[in-house]
Design a protein around this nucleic acid. Structure first.
Lengths: 204, 204
DNA sequence: AATGAGTTTAACCAAATGGTTGACAAAGCT
DNA sequence: AGCTTTGTCAACCATTTGGTTAAACTCATT
Protein backbone atom coordinates (compact mmCIF):
# COMPACT_ATOMS: atom_id res chain seq x y z
CA UNK A 1 0.00 0.00 0.00
CA UNK A 2 1.25 3.48 -0.86
CA UNK A 3 2.05 5.86 1.95
CA UNK A 4 -0.73 8.23 0.85
CA UNK A 5 -3.31 5.49 1.35
CA UNK A 6 -2.53 4.55 4.93
CA UNK A 7 -5.17 5.49 7.48
CA UNK A 8 -2.66 7.58 9.39
CA UNK A 9 -1.88 9.67 6.34
CA UNK A 10 -5.52 10.03 5.35
CA UNK A 11 -6.23 11.40 8.80
CA UNK A 12 -3.42 13.93 8.57
CA UNK A 13 -4.67 14.98 5.17
CA UNK A 14 -8.23 15.49 6.32
CA UNK A 15 -7.04 17.22 9.48
CA UNK A 16 -4.98 19.62 7.38
CA UNK A 17 -8.09 20.62 5.45
CA UNK A 18 -10.23 21.16 8.48
CA UNK A 19 -7.69 22.78 10.80
CA UNK A 20 -6.38 25.12 8.15
CA UNK A 21 -9.76 26.40 7.13
CA UNK A 22 -11.43 26.50 10.56
CA UNK A 23 -8.59 26.82 13.04
CA UNK A 24 -8.04 24.81 16.20
CA UNK A 25 -11.18 26.06 17.96
CA UNK A 26 -13.47 25.81 14.98
CA UNK A 27 -12.36 22.36 13.90
CA UNK A 28 -14.42 19.31 14.89
CA UNK A 29 -12.99 15.85 15.30
CA UNK A 30 -16.11 14.38 13.74
CA UNK A 31 -15.66 16.47 10.61
CA UNK A 32 -12.08 15.31 10.27
CA UNK A 33 -13.14 11.70 10.66
CA UNK A 34 -15.91 12.10 8.09
CA UNK A 35 -13.55 13.75 5.62
CA UNK A 36 -11.04 10.94 6.10
CA UNK A 37 -13.80 8.38 5.70
CA UNK A 38 -13.09 6.63 8.98
CA UNK A 39 -14.39 6.25 12.50
CA UNK A 40 -13.74 9.04 15.01
CA UNK A 41 -12.00 6.64 17.36
CA UNK A 42 -9.23 6.20 14.81
CA UNK A 43 -8.19 9.80 15.26
CA UNK A 44 -7.40 9.05 18.86
CA UNK A 45 -5.88 5.70 18.05
CA UNK A 46 -3.28 7.36 15.83
CA UNK A 47 -2.89 10.82 17.36
CA UNK A 48 -4.17 10.46 20.94
CA UNK A 49 -5.82 13.88 21.22
CA UNK A 50 -7.08 16.84 19.24
CA UNK A 51 -4.13 18.89 20.49
CA UNK A 52 -1.56 16.39 19.24
CA UNK A 53 -3.29 15.99 15.89
CA UNK A 54 -3.33 19.75 15.58
CA UNK A 55 0.36 19.99 16.38
CA UNK A 56 1.15 17.40 13.74
CA UNK A 57 -0.71 19.48 11.18
CA UNK A 58 0.90 22.69 12.32
CA UNK A 59 4.45 21.42 12.24
CA UNK A 60 3.78 19.99 8.82
CA UNK A 61 2.52 23.36 7.59
CA UNK A 62 5.41 25.26 9.07
CA UNK A 63 7.93 22.86 7.60
CA UNK A 64 6.44 23.73 4.23
CA UNK A 65 6.90 27.45 4.80
CA UNK A 66 10.34 27.52 6.39
CA UNK A 67 12.27 26.42 3.27
CA UNK A 68 10.66 29.28 1.37
CA UNK A 69 12.17 31.72 3.83
CA UNK A 70 15.51 29.96 3.97
CA UNK A 71 15.75 30.16 0.21
CA UNK A 72 16.14 33.91 0.30
CA UNK A 73 18.22 33.94 3.46
CA UNK A 74 20.90 31.41 2.67
CA UNK A 75 21.87 31.58 -0.98
CA UNK A 76 24.79 33.63 -2.20
CA UNK A 77 23.19 35.85 -4.82
CA UNK A 78 22.87 39.63 -4.60
CA UNK A 79 20.11 41.19 -2.54
CA UNK A 80 18.43 42.31 -5.75
CA UNK A 81 18.40 38.79 -7.14
CA UNK A 82 17.20 37.37 -3.83
CA UNK A 83 14.24 39.76 -3.87
CA UNK A 84 13.33 39.04 -7.47
CA UNK A 85 13.46 35.31 -6.93
CA UNK A 86 11.72 35.28 -3.57
CA UNK A 87 8.86 37.51 -4.64
CA UNK A 88 8.10 35.34 -7.62
CA UNK A 89 8.59 31.98 -5.90
CA UNK A 90 6.77 32.89 -2.73
CA UNK A 91 3.73 34.24 -4.54
CA UNK A 92 3.50 31.10 -6.66
CA UNK A 93 3.80 28.99 -3.54
CA UNK A 94 1.07 30.92 -1.71
CA UNK A 95 -1.30 30.68 -4.65
CA UNK A 96 -1.05 26.92 -4.22
CA UNK A 97 -1.54 27.01 -0.44
CA UNK A 98 -3.92 29.88 0.18
CA UNK A 99 -4.86 28.85 3.73
CA UNK A 100 -1.30 28.50 4.93
CA UNK A 101 -0.33 32.05 5.94
CA UNK A 102 -3.52 32.74 7.84
CA UNK A 103 -3.36 29.41 9.58
CA UNK A 104 0.20 29.90 10.76
CA UNK A 105 -0.11 33.56 11.74
CA UNK A 106 -3.31 32.85 13.55
CA UNK A 107 -2.28 29.92 15.58
CA UNK A 108 0.98 31.57 16.50
CA UNK A 109 -1.03 34.47 17.83
CA UNK A 110 -3.36 32.18 19.70
CA UNK A 111 -0.48 30.56 21.48
CA UNK A 112 2.76 32.49 21.59
CA UNK A 113 4.62 29.71 23.38
CA UNK A 114 4.06 27.54 20.36
CA UNK A 115 6.78 29.26 18.39
CA UNK A 116 9.36 28.38 21.01
CA UNK A 117 8.99 24.72 20.10
CA UNK A 118 9.68 25.59 16.47
CA UNK A 119 12.63 27.86 17.21
CA UNK A 120 14.67 24.99 18.60
CA UNK A 121 14.11 22.92 15.49
CA UNK A 122 16.85 22.90 12.98
CA UNK A 123 15.66 24.59 9.84
CA UNK A 124 14.12 27.51 11.64
CA UNK A 125 14.96 30.52 9.45
CA UNK A 126 18.03 32.47 10.51
CA UNK A 127 18.72 36.01 9.31
CA UNK A 128 22.44 36.27 10.01
CA UNK A 129 23.70 35.62 6.53
CA UNK A 130 21.11 37.94 5.02
CA UNK A 131 22.10 40.74 7.41
CA UNK A 132 25.76 40.43 6.51
CA UNK A 133 24.97 40.59 2.81
CA UNK A 134 22.73 43.63 3.22
CA UNK A 135 25.35 45.48 5.26
CA UNK A 136 28.09 44.68 2.79
CA UNK A 137 26.05 45.89 -0.17
CA UNK A 138 25.30 49.09 1.70
CA UNK A 139 29.02 49.56 2.31
CA UNK A 140 29.68 48.94 -1.37
CA UNK A 141 27.19 51.65 -2.23
CA UNK A 142 24.82 49.30 -4.02
CA UNK A 143 22.03 49.83 -1.50
CA UNK A 144 20.86 52.86 0.42
CA UNK A 145 21.35 52.50 4.18
CA UNK A 146 18.60 50.36 5.73
CA UNK A 147 18.32 48.10 8.73
CA UNK A 148 18.34 44.49 7.54
CA UNK A 149 15.53 43.48 9.92
CA UNK A 150 13.35 46.27 8.59
CA UNK A 151 14.08 45.28 5.03
CA UNK A 152 13.30 41.64 5.70
CA UNK A 153 10.01 42.46 7.40
CA UNK A 154 9.12 44.74 4.49
CA UNK A 155 9.78 41.94 2.03
CA UNK A 156 7.64 39.55 4.02
CA UNK A 157 4.90 42.13 4.49
CA UNK A 158 4.58 42.96 0.80
CA UNK A 159 4.51 39.30 -0.17
CA UNK A 160 2.34 37.82 2.57
CA UNK A 161 -0.22 40.54 3.25
CA UNK A 162 -2.23 40.18 0.04
CA UNK A 163 -2.92 36.58 1.07
CA UNK A 164 -3.51 37.25 4.75
CA UNK A 165 -5.92 40.06 3.99
CA UNK A 166 -7.47 38.63 0.86
CA UNK A 167 -11.11 39.46 1.69
CA UNK A 168 -10.17 42.96 2.78
CA UNK A 169 -8.05 43.55 -0.32
CA UNK A 170 -10.80 42.26 -2.56
CA UNK A 171 -13.38 44.50 -0.94
CA UNK A 172 -11.26 47.64 -0.83
CA UNK A 173 -10.04 47.39 -4.41
CA UNK A 174 -13.42 46.12 -5.62
CA UNK A 175 -12.07 43.04 -7.32
CA UNK A 176 -13.84 39.75 -7.94
CA UNK A 177 -11.97 36.47 -7.61
CA UNK A 178 -10.63 36.63 -11.15
CA UNK A 179 -9.38 40.20 -10.86
CA UNK A 180 -7.85 39.39 -7.48
CA UNK A 181 -5.89 36.50 -8.96
CA UNK A 182 -4.60 38.71 -11.77
CA UNK A 183 -3.70 41.35 -9.21
CA UNK A 184 -1.68 38.89 -7.15
CA UNK A 185 -0.09 37.41 -10.25
CA UNK A 186 1.14 40.81 -11.37
CA UNK A 187 2.63 41.39 -7.93
CA UNK A 188 5.20 38.71 -8.72
CA UNK A 189 7.14 41.37 -10.58
CA UNK A 190 5.58 44.59 -9.27
CA UNK A 191 6.61 43.96 -5.68
CA UNK A 192 10.19 43.19 -6.61
CA UNK A 193 10.42 46.43 -8.59
CA UNK A 194 8.88 48.33 -5.72
CA UNK A 195 11.36 47.03 -3.18
CA UNK A 196 14.36 47.45 -5.43
CA UNK A 197 13.36 51.02 -6.26
CA UNK A 198 13.12 51.68 -2.56
CA UNK A 199 16.56 50.41 -1.60
CA UNK A 200 18.88 50.65 -4.60
CA UNK A 201 21.10 53.66 -4.99
CA UNK A 202 20.59 55.36 -8.34
CA UNK A 203 23.16 54.26 -10.90
CA UNK A 204 25.91 56.62 -11.95
CA UNK B 1 -25.55 56.70 35.39
CA UNK B 2 -22.81 57.16 32.82
CA UNK B 3 -23.09 55.29 29.56
CA UNK B 4 -19.93 53.30 30.32
CA UNK B 5 -21.53 51.86 33.44
CA UNK B 6 -24.70 50.46 31.92
CA UNK B 7 -24.92 46.69 31.82
CA UNK B 8 -25.29 46.73 28.08
CA UNK B 9 -22.03 48.62 27.64
CA UNK B 10 -20.19 46.49 30.18
CA UNK B 11 -21.19 43.41 28.19
CA UNK B 12 -19.96 44.91 24.94
CA UNK B 13 -16.71 45.85 26.62
CA UNK B 14 -16.13 42.39 28.02
CA UNK B 15 -17.20 40.80 24.75
CA UNK B 16 -14.69 42.94 22.90
CA UNK B 17 -11.91 41.62 25.12
CA UNK B 18 -12.85 38.00 24.76
CA UNK B 19 -13.81 37.94 21.09
CA UNK B 20 -10.79 39.91 19.99
CA UNK B 21 -8.31 37.72 21.81
CA UNK B 22 -9.97 34.33 21.23
CA UNK B 23 -12.06 34.77 18.10
CA UNK B 24 -15.66 33.73 17.57
CA UNK B 25 -15.03 30.00 17.98
CA UNK B 26 -12.70 30.25 20.95
CA UNK B 27 -14.84 32.71 22.89
CA UNK B 28 -17.12 31.45 25.68
CA UNK B 29 -20.29 33.20 26.74
CA UNK B 30 -19.55 32.34 30.38
CA UNK B 31 -16.17 34.03 30.20
CA UNK B 32 -17.74 37.17 28.78
CA UNK B 33 -20.35 37.18 31.55
CA UNK B 34 -17.69 36.68 34.22
CA UNK B 35 -15.55 39.48 32.81
CA UNK B 36 -18.58 41.78 32.75
CA UNK B 37 -19.47 40.75 36.28
CA UNK B 38 -23.01 39.66 35.43
CA UNK B 39 -25.12 36.58 34.85
CA UNK B 40 -24.87 34.71 31.60
CA UNK B 41 -28.58 35.17 30.95
CA UNK B 42 -28.01 38.91 30.64
CA UNK B 43 -25.94 38.39 27.52
CA UNK B 44 -28.97 36.91 25.83
CA UNK B 45 -31.29 39.48 27.30
CA UNK B 46 -29.34 42.28 25.63
CA UNK B 47 -27.93 40.63 22.53
CA UNK B 48 -30.11 37.56 21.96
CA UNK B 49 -27.37 35.23 20.74
CA UNK B 50 -23.62 34.73 20.58
CA UNK B 51 -23.70 35.51 16.88
CA UNK B 52 -25.41 38.87 17.37
CA UNK B 53 -23.14 39.83 20.23
CA UNK B 54 -20.20 38.95 18.05
CA UNK B 55 -21.50 41.06 15.20
CA UNK B 56 -21.94 44.02 17.52
CA UNK B 57 -18.30 43.70 18.57
CA UNK B 58 -17.12 43.27 15.02
CA UNK B 59 -18.96 46.26 13.61
CA UNK B 60 -17.65 48.30 16.49
CA UNK B 61 -14.09 47.23 15.73
CA UNK B 62 -14.40 47.87 12.03
CA UNK B 63 -15.90 51.31 12.61
CA UNK B 64 -12.73 52.10 14.54
CA UNK B 65 -10.52 51.03 11.67
CA UNK B 66 -12.38 52.52 8.72
CA UNK B 67 -11.72 56.19 9.61
CA UNK B 68 -8.01 55.42 9.70
CA UNK B 69 -8.19 54.29 6.11
CA UNK B 70 -10.46 57.12 5.03
CA UNK B 71 -7.99 59.61 6.47
CA UNK B 72 -5.42 58.78 3.83
CA UNK B 73 -7.95 58.31 1.08
CA UNK B 74 -10.01 61.46 1.29
CA UNK B 75 -7.84 64.40 2.23
CA UNK B 76 -6.34 66.72 -0.36
CA UNK B 77 -2.65 66.58 0.48
CA UNK B 78 0.04 65.14 -1.78
CA UNK B 79 0.62 61.41 -1.94
CA UNK B 80 3.91 61.88 -0.13
CA UNK B 81 2.23 63.73 2.74
CA UNK B 82 -0.57 61.16 2.88
CA UNK B 83 1.97 58.38 3.26
CA UNK B 84 3.97 60.16 5.94
CA UNK B 85 0.87 60.96 7.95
CA UNK B 86 -0.82 57.61 7.54
CA UNK B 87 2.25 55.58 8.44
CA UNK B 88 2.75 57.49 11.63
CA UNK B 89 -0.91 57.72 12.65
CA UNK B 90 -1.77 54.15 11.79
CA UNK B 91 1.16 52.69 13.69
CA UNK B 92 0.27 54.73 16.77
CA UNK B 93 -3.30 53.57 16.48
CA UNK B 94 -2.32 49.92 16.17
CA UNK B 95 -0.02 50.11 19.15
CA UNK B 96 -3.10 51.06 21.18
CA UNK B 97 -5.27 48.31 19.68
CA UNK B 98 -2.96 45.38 19.11
CA UNK B 99 -5.69 42.76 18.73
CA UNK B 100 -7.66 44.70 16.15
CA UNK B 101 -5.98 43.77 12.85
CA UNK B 102 -5.82 40.07 13.57
CA UNK B 103 -9.38 40.02 14.77
CA UNK B 104 -10.72 41.73 11.67
CA UNK B 105 -8.58 39.88 9.13
CA UNK B 106 -9.40 36.61 10.78
CA UNK B 107 -13.09 36.89 11.04
CA UNK B 108 -13.33 38.24 7.51
CA UNK B 109 -11.53 35.12 6.37
CA UNK B 110 -13.76 32.89 8.43
CA UNK B 111 -16.84 34.33 6.80
CA UNK B 112 -16.35 36.08 3.49
CA UNK B 113 -19.99 37.09 3.25
CA UNK B 114 -19.51 39.20 6.33
CA UNK B 115 -17.74 41.94 4.43
CA UNK B 116 -20.72 42.40 2.15
CA UNK B 117 -22.72 43.74 5.08
CA UNK B 118 -19.98 46.26 5.75
CA UNK B 119 -19.58 47.32 2.14
CA UNK B 120 -23.08 48.74 1.99
CA UNK B 121 -22.47 50.85 5.07
CA UNK B 122 -21.64 54.45 4.49
CA UNK B 123 -18.11 55.06 5.64
CA UNK B 124 -16.71 52.00 3.96
CA UNK B 125 -13.36 53.14 2.55
CA UNK B 126 -13.42 54.17 -1.10
CA UNK B 127 -10.28 54.42 -3.21
CA UNK B 128 -11.53 56.61 -6.06
CA UNK B 129 -10.13 59.90 -4.87
CA UNK B 130 -6.80 58.29 -4.00
CA UNK B 131 -6.53 56.73 -7.45
CA UNK B 132 -7.16 60.04 -9.18
CA UNK B 133 -4.50 61.74 -7.09
CA UNK B 134 -1.95 59.00 -7.77
CA UNK B 135 -2.60 59.12 -11.51
CA UNK B 136 -2.35 62.89 -11.62
CA UNK B 137 0.96 62.91 -9.71
CA UNK B 138 2.30 60.29 -12.11
CA UNK B 139 1.27 62.49 -15.07
CA UNK B 140 2.98 65.47 -13.41
CA UNK B 141 6.15 63.42 -13.14
CA UNK B 142 6.21 63.48 -9.34
CA UNK B 143 5.74 59.72 -9.05
CA UNK B 144 7.04 56.84 -11.07
CA UNK B 145 4.27 54.92 -12.87
CA UNK B 146 2.47 52.56 -10.50
CA UNK B 147 -1.00 51.10 -10.27
CA UNK B 148 -2.89 52.87 -7.48
CA UNK B 149 -4.38 49.62 -6.15
CA UNK B 150 -0.93 48.10 -5.92
CA UNK B 151 0.41 51.13 -4.13
CA UNK B 152 -2.45 51.16 -1.67
CA UNK B 153 -2.07 47.48 -0.87
CA UNK B 154 1.67 48.02 -0.42
CA UNK B 155 1.02 50.82 2.05
CA UNK B 156 -1.43 48.68 3.99
CA UNK B 157 0.89 45.68 3.90
CA UNK B 158 3.90 47.53 5.26
CA UNK B 159 1.87 49.10 8.04
CA UNK B 160 -0.34 46.22 9.10
CA UNK B 161 1.86 43.17 8.69
CA UNK B 162 4.17 43.81 11.66
CA UNK B 163 1.09 43.68 13.90
CA UNK B 164 -0.59 40.75 12.16
CA UNK B 165 2.57 38.70 12.28
CA UNK B 166 3.92 39.92 15.59
CA UNK B 167 4.95 36.51 16.97
CA UNK B 168 6.57 35.54 13.69
CA UNK B 169 8.39 38.86 13.40
CA UNK B 170 9.60 38.61 16.97
CA UNK B 171 10.88 35.09 16.47
CA UNK B 172 12.54 35.69 13.09
CA UNK B 173 14.30 38.89 14.11
CA UNK B 174 15.04 37.54 17.60
CA UNK B 175 13.52 40.47 19.44
CA UNK B 176 11.98 40.48 22.91
CA UNK B 177 8.88 42.55 23.63
CA UNK B 178 10.88 45.71 24.29
CA UNK B 179 12.96 45.44 21.13
CA UNK B 180 9.85 44.66 19.14
CA UNK B 181 8.16 47.81 20.38
CA UNK B 182 11.19 49.90 19.46
CA UNK B 183 11.26 48.21 16.07
CA UNK B 184 7.64 49.07 15.40
CA UNK B 185 8.08 52.59 16.73
CA UNK B 186 10.95 53.24 14.33
CA UNK B 187 8.81 52.01 11.45
CA UNK B 188 6.66 55.12 11.87
CA UNK B 189 9.27 56.96 9.82
CA UNK B 190 11.21 54.09 8.20
CA UNK B 191 8.21 52.77 6.30
CA UNK B 192 7.27 56.18 4.95
CA UNK B 193 10.83 56.67 3.66
CA UNK B 194 10.80 53.23 2.15
CA UNK B 195 7.59 53.81 0.24
CA UNK B 196 8.53 57.27 -0.91
CA UNK B 197 11.91 56.07 -2.13
CA UNK B 198 10.12 53.39 -4.08
CA UNK B 199 7.69 55.64 -5.90
CA UNK B 200 9.14 59.15 -6.17
CA UNK B 201 10.99 60.15 -9.28
CA UNK B 202 14.50 61.41 -8.50
CA UNK B 203 14.62 65.21 -8.27
CA UNK B 204 16.25 67.22 -11.02
C1' DA C 1 -6.72 -24.32 12.78
C1' DA C 2 -4.98 -21.63 16.63
C1' DT C 3 -2.54 -17.54 18.19
C1' DG C 4 -1.88 -12.84 18.70
C1' DA C 5 -0.70 -8.24 17.36
C1' DG C 6 -2.52 -4.46 14.93
C1' DT C 7 -6.66 -2.14 13.20
C1' DT C 8 -11.52 -0.67 13.09
C1' DT C 9 -16.13 0.08 14.70
C1' DA C 10 -20.53 1.06 17.35
C1' DA C 11 -21.94 2.47 21.53
C1' DC C 12 -21.14 5.05 25.31
C1' DC C 13 -19.71 8.88 28.71
C1' DA C 14 -18.77 13.09 31.20
C1' DA C 15 -18.07 17.72 30.58
C1' DA C 16 -18.86 21.90 28.35
C1' DT C 17 -21.77 25.02 25.97
C1' DG C 18 -25.33 28.19 24.06
C1' DG C 19 -29.58 29.13 25.25
C1' DT C 20 -34.24 29.17 28.10
C1' DT C 21 -37.41 29.60 32.02
C1' DG C 22 -39.66 31.28 35.94
C1' DA C 23 -39.25 33.74 39.92
C1' DC C 24 -38.34 38.08 41.73
C1' DA C 25 -36.88 42.88 42.45
C1' DA C 26 -36.50 47.79 41.03
C1' DA C 27 -38.18 51.54 38.62
C1' DG C 28 -41.84 54.07 36.01
C1' DC C 29 -46.36 55.21 35.27
C1' DT C 30 -51.56 55.95 36.30
C1' DA D 1 -51.23 52.50 46.21
C1' DG D 2 -51.73 49.38 42.16
C1' DC D 3 -49.96 47.96 37.68
C1' DT D 4 -46.64 47.42 34.00
C1' DT D 5 -42.14 47.43 32.19
C1' DT D 6 -37.40 46.54 32.59
C1' DG D 7 -33.54 44.29 34.64
C1' DT D 8 -31.32 40.39 37.08
C1' DC D 9 -30.44 35.85 38.66
C1' DA D 10 -30.17 30.72 39.81
C1' DA D 11 -31.41 26.66 37.99
C1' DC D 12 -32.27 24.08 34.20
C1' DC D 13 -32.19 22.00 29.36
C1' DA D 14 -30.82 19.97 24.92
C1' DT D 15 -27.07 19.41 22.16
C1' DT D 16 -22.44 19.10 20.99
C1' DT D 17 -17.94 17.59 21.76
C1' DG D 18 -13.55 15.33 22.84
C1' DG D 19 -12.51 11.21 24.41
C1' DT D 20 -13.09 5.99 26.01
C1' DT D 21 -14.23 1.09 25.88
C1' DA D 22 -14.94 -3.40 24.67
C1' DA D 23 -15.91 -6.19 21.19
C1' DA D 24 -14.95 -7.62 16.49
C1' DC D 25 -12.31 -8.05 12.34
C1' DT D 26 -7.82 -8.85 9.54
C1' DC D 27 -4.00 -11.17 8.53
C1' DA D 28 0.65 -12.89 9.02
C1' DT D 29 2.95 -16.52 11.75
C1' DT D 30 3.03 -20.85 13.89
Amino acid sequence: MKKEETTEHQILDAAKDVFQSKGMDGARMQEIADKAGINKAMLHYYYRSKQLLFEAVFKNAFSLLAPQLNAILNDDSSIEDKIIKFTSDYTSFMMKHPYLPNFIINELNRNEDFILKLKDNTGFPNLEKFKIKVDSEIKEGILKPIDADQLFVNILALNIFPFLGKPLVKALTKKDEKAYKAFVESRKVEVAHFIINAIKTPKG
